[in-house]
Design a binder for these strands. Structure first.
Length: 564
RNA sequence: UGGGGUGUCGCCAAGCGGUAAGGCAUUGGACUCUGACUCCAACAUCCGAGGGUUCGAAUCCUUCCACCCCAGCCA
């Protein structure tokens, strides 16, 4: 805004910054850098939009400039106040600050005046062709279009007709205002594009105050210039629109000229991002809502427990270019873990419990031990916990007959119970189906953690004291969709259409209702936890007074490959 | 088959005429009371293909190929 810093070239990290540097060096830009974040409030933002946000706010920030949030709300047919509100929350959560909030609808009067100016200069005309007729005369990719019979109306007639459009005298769709450019242009966008349409709709912000609405191609460049935007950064689909953008800017009579630069969208392999696809999943009840933790909407990622810094790091690491990028989800996981690793409190939780009885520990005896809250930090707070006779360990941490390189519990083997003692497995019980029902072990009193014990064992496992625990629900997630082959198999060999119907991965949500956590830990919504050896977790909003629900944000990287 | 854009390691991505950065993934190994983290090492004789210019090209020229976007009174 008024405190924009005069821009200096910076060390460019991508082609957009290179272009901006050139503009500064060539003197095209004399003041500060200004960008805009122009979402249409027609849906929830997803991880692909995070790139737009990072680029627009982040670039302005780097140059000491400003980025305004401008709602591109020129189509009331698709927009809702619900989305307007959600958008701001998402941007705030990501940690970016806008210079000001604007709405495209704020500029309607100015847009209108410029349209009138264009008419007076013979650069725009009212066309009476129907949408179908207009489409039929636009030509094709290989053939030029035909000029509209209304193309050469007099300025007076155009002015009168446009005024009457504005006054609501004509039926919706009966007339429109078109820019007079070139019906033979190889660029379809330049074939006398529609710049104003009649629309009688209740707009979420301005109600029924306007009967005519400018199209994106007309309002966007104008609003950029009006607002003082220097660089209008947008998606690749607008590349073809750039000549039109420039045409509007040059003919607007506005002094500030904004420059449009396009960059590629961000996709993640196997992740559903299309607005209509997500919407369909929500409507069909295949997910619990726009904030289902399996969705890559910003609210979904947030609910899942991902921290904004991870998203920002991820976007920068992925880079910004003009080529289509489909990123490996493992890369996102890496940055999610990387952020979480630094801030998460370590606690023990057993997700798939199996009983472990320490036979040489007397019934009823509870021995105090000490656990680090943040062992990854130099300084860590500690908490008390108790070792006893009746414990739970992870079912995965026991095998009747070990596979090679298996370092956990099996008859005869010793492992360390984290923070407590080394125990030796002495036996197990199983039911008639061979399912293990309990494990037996003896602990070695000379091996208490922190006692200076020098004995080493290959495996250390986490555990929960059955007399000192809380039962909770843990929700584990996998990708919503499966790789194509598996998906087709699930669909009975039928190829899935692209109509938005997807086969959901049956394992995309696993609810473990019999999980246990330490009873001495006060869990809260703002903190992040690493359930040791199980992954990063956070409290879900479904938590109630008597049941805590945890989402696994992401698992830990698992270096052990179980041989088959 | 018109126009616009893109093609560099499995996935991203630097490189802008001087002889292939980096990240993720992967693979070894060290460390480890998380098989995590961290650390160290390996990982494109080659830049979509062919031809040309040059002492020298991923970078320049040329031909070809592949993929993406555009025919809303959507954005």
């Amino acid at each position: 805004m008024d405190k924009i810093k005069k821009a200096e070239p910076i060390e460019a990290t991508n082609f957009i910054e290179q272009e901006i540097n050139k503009d500064i060096l060539s003197g095209k830009i004399s003041g500060g850098i200004q960008t805009r974040h122009p979402p249409e409030p027609s849906g929830y933002l997803h991880i692909g939009h995070v790139r737009n946000i990072v680029i627009n706010y982040g670039t302005a920030l780097k140059y000491g400039g400003v980025c305004n949030l401008r709602y591109d709300d020129t189509n009331p047919e698709k927009e809702k106040q619900e989305y307007v509100d959600a958008l701001q929350e998402d941007v705030k959560w990501l940690g970016y600050k806008w210079g000001a909030i604007h709405y495209a609808t704020e500029y309607f009067q100015q847009n209108y005046e410029i349209a009138v100016k264009l008419i007076k200069e013979g650069k725009a005309y009212v066309c009476d062709l129907s949408a179908e007729e207009l489409s039929a005369t636009r030509g094709t990719l290989t053939e030029p279009g035909k000029e509209s019979p209304y193309r050469n109306r007099s300025v007076e007639e155009n002015l009168d007709l446009f005024e009457r459009m504005k006054n609501g005298e004509f039926e919706q769709g009966s007339r429109c205002l078109r820019a007079k450019i070139d019906m033979a242009s190889p660029n379809m966008n330049m074939r006398d594009p529609v710049i104003y349409r009649i629309q009688y709709l209740d707009h979420q912000r301005i109600g029924r105050s306007w009967n005519i609405y400018p199209s994106y191609d007309f309002s966007h460049p104008l609003d950029d210039c009006l607002e003082g935007v220097t660089h209008s950064l947008c998606g690749p689909e607008f590349e073809d629109h750039r000549p039109l953008y420039n045409w509007v800017v040059e003919n607007s009579g506005l002094k500030n000229h904004s420059r449009q630069i396009e960059y590629a969208n961000l996709y993640i392999k196997g992740v559903i991002l299309g607005k209509r696809f997500i919407k369909k999943l929500v409507e069909q009840g295949k997910v619990s809502g726009w904030d289902d933790p399996r969705l890559y909407t910003i609210i979904g990622l947030r609910r899942r427990g991902i921290l904004p810094q991870s998203l920002i790091d991820f976007v920068y690491a992925a880079g910004i270019s003009k080529s289509v990028s489909v990123i490996d989800p493992a890369m996102l996981d890496y940055f999610v873990r990387n952020t979480l690793n630094k801030v998460s409190r370590r606690v023990m939780a057993v997700l798939n419990p199996i009983k472990l009885v320490i036979t040489n520990m007397p019934e009823g005896k509870q021995e105090e031990i000490e656990l680090d809250d943040y062992p990854q930090n130099e300084e860590s707070t500690k908490r008390k916990y108790y070792f006893g006779r009746n414990l739970y360990v992870e079912a995965d941490d026991f095998m009747k007959e070990p596979v090679p390189k298996y370092h956990r519990l099996y008859p005869g083997n010793e492992v360390r119970l984290m923070g407590a003692y080394i125990v030796k497995c002495t036996g197990f019980d199983q039911d008639e189906n061979g399912n293990v029902t309990s494990i037996y072990a003896e602990y070695d009193k000379d091996t208490k953690s922190g006692s200076g014990c020098t004995k080493k064992v290959k495996g250390t496992i986490h555990w929960i004291n059955a007399d000192r625990c809380k039962k909770v629900e843990a929700r584990l997630f996998e990708n919503l969709t499966l790789p194509k082959e598996e998906e087709n198999e699930l669909a009975g060999g039928k190829e899935q259409g692209s109509d938005g119907d997807v086969v959901i991965n049956p394992n995309s949500l696993k609810v473990l209702g019999n999980a246990f956590v330490e009873d001495g830990v006060d869990f809260n919504f703002n903190d992040r936890y690493q359930f040791l050896r199980n992954g990063y977790f956070c409290l879900d909003k479904d938590t109630t007074a008597d049941k805590m629900v945890f989402n696994r944000t992401v698992s830990l990287k698992d270096g052990f490959k179980m041989p088959q």
